[in-house]
Design a protein around this nucleic acid. Sequence first.
DNA 1: AGATACTTTGACAACGATATCAATTTATTG
DNA 2: CAATAAATTGATATCGTTGTCAAAGTATCT
Lengths: 336, 336
Amino acid sequence: MSVTIKDVSKDAGVSIKTVSRVINNEENVSESTKEKVLRSVTKLGFKPNKSAQSLRSKRSYMIALLYDNPNKSYLADVQGGILQACKRTGYNLVLQECNHEDESISSSIIEFVNDFKIDGLIITPPLSDMDEFLDDLDNEDIEYSIIAPSTKKASSPYVSSNDYDASYEMTSKIIEYGHQQIGFVKGHNMHSASSLRFNGFINALDDHGIERNFDWIQDGDFSFGSGFNAGENIFSLKNIPSAIFASNDSMAAGIMKSARMKNIDIPDQLSIIGFDDSPTAQQVWPSMSTVKQPVEEMAMHAAKLLITQFDGLTEKTVSKEFKSEIIIRESLHRLI
Amino acid sequence: MSVTIKDVSKDAGVSIKTVSRVINNEENVSESTKEKVLRSVTKLGFKPNKSAQSLRSKRSYMIALLYDNPNKSYLADVQGGILQACKRTGYNLVLQECNHEDESISSSIIEFVNDFKIDGLIITPPLSDMDEFLDDLDNEDIEYSIIAPSTKKASSPYVSSNDYDASYEMTSKIIEYGHQQIGFVKGHNMHSASSLRFNGFINALDDHGIERNFDWIQDGDFSFGSGFNAGENIFSLKNIPSAIFASNDSMAAGIMKSARMKNIDIPDQLSIIGFDDSPTAQQVWPSMSTVKQPVEEMAMHAAKLLITQFDGLTEKTVSKEFKSEIIIRESLHRLI
DNA sequence: AGATACTTTGACAACGATATCAATTTATTG
DNA sequence: CAATAAATTGATATCGTTGTCAAAGTATCT
């Protein structure tokens, strides 16, 4: 049926162990035999049997993506990035949806990893903020890499984005456009990004000598509905701000809808700014100013980070912070 | 380390083969030994080693999702549905992105399936419309189930939606609301859903004695940009329709934007109707009337369909057509 | 040259399950 | 009750790799 190591070894005139050495890039194989074996490998079109490799070496060549994030667009980007890294290295991606409120999350994930001999995990927010969970994984010697961690544990590789800086910069841009009365809608408090984005906003206000107005600062949970509610709250006040910065695009869209229903013109009377650059940002009218993070690239790096660990490649991949991009579209009105 | 069949066989006082028989639900095992074995299995917490099973039985307990669809929300729903079916049956999902324009798609997928011993494929549009590709899979005896097939090959299990009926019904609803001048934007011509939706539209027009105006019928490819262009084309005409039905929500959003830029009021001057009920549909203003398909449910069924084939379960899952739901929101204006 | 160290190679066991086929037990028949 | 058929069970080979460890080949050092 399919070509095995035995076939290759016969063709090359060496032992099966030597073939195994060559295909696993082990040391102590002479150049000449290496060449000989590789010639046979390509000639016969040999591909190692993953199941056998897995059985013997306890590795599955599969990594799993752990997520608990209703944001479909984010998820798709993350997947895309990981898949690119997988394709290049022969790994496979398995999806595992989690519930961060589940008490037994640690044990069920540990069981999953052991059952399928998953080689490593890629962990996304808000799971990346659950320190206890990560500790449990450490205790089981399960390898993982984290996207957007809160506690940057030296022990584990991660990729992060400059949420604080991006938020600070965007807020400064809003101020530069002449806005002095600026509202803010916070994200889900389980996500560390929420506080980073909020702090960036607050500090930018302070540094530019602009007064904080806590009536205009609303809680949210990243959902469209929570944005809508935040809008309702703000628009029921006597004074409303001239701009509202939401911690993500969905909430910004919710505010937009709420404003429309109150006949508040966007952007003439009110500027709205989001975060993420989701597809919606370009599909609403007016199109939304927002912050774009290189999510796909980040995810690809996270996957490389993980694979590097157990493949022991020569070029070491290291933890890295990625830079966001400020995108100005029609929803941000210039006052001066 | 982990519990093996050998441990169970010792504990139960039977041979390993008998344990294997029990866990695989094979025939010809007496009730008493079956019970004895199952007691040991739960007592020791035995889980069969997937790699070993896979090596010996040539099955991987993995199914793959084949996709080439830029619609992230659709993809996420499909994944969600499949994962639910997988969780219940112990299978795992692997993602495989394809390019339907790739000449070598058949060979690369066949190679992928053989390499990883993938048990079966779930095929989504537009790949589900590539008959040659499906024939190639048949020749290799690769099992698959199809979401939204064009040619309903009796040989292969599928799930489908009533695109034609839904489109017919939505068009009738638009007419019922008093619209006599209705435009249409077609979907990507590789997708069989595109012609089904178009035919439903045309036949509803005819049946209600409404004239077709081909200036108002535009080609599109399901992208926001193509919807925007379609809008530009229609709005440059002397007469514009009072409603436009787009073959999906992204294109509808594109038309909306184009209309806004021409200061055409939605929905007072122009009604816009989409298809899919993507998240955007609720996040734009006015929120969009659209057709919702039970994508997640369909995908779950497709996965069950596939797993049934090689697991030979007692209750046979069969191919099925799912019903869509007409959702009326603000973007459809009532004229009468 | 002989002793020693290091590099390269291969024979064979092992991973943990299923497949084969023969042995044993139980049921059925004349 | 013996003969035969059918159901149940187990000993052992097997899947295709990697791991262990010893043997063979080369290089280096007195």
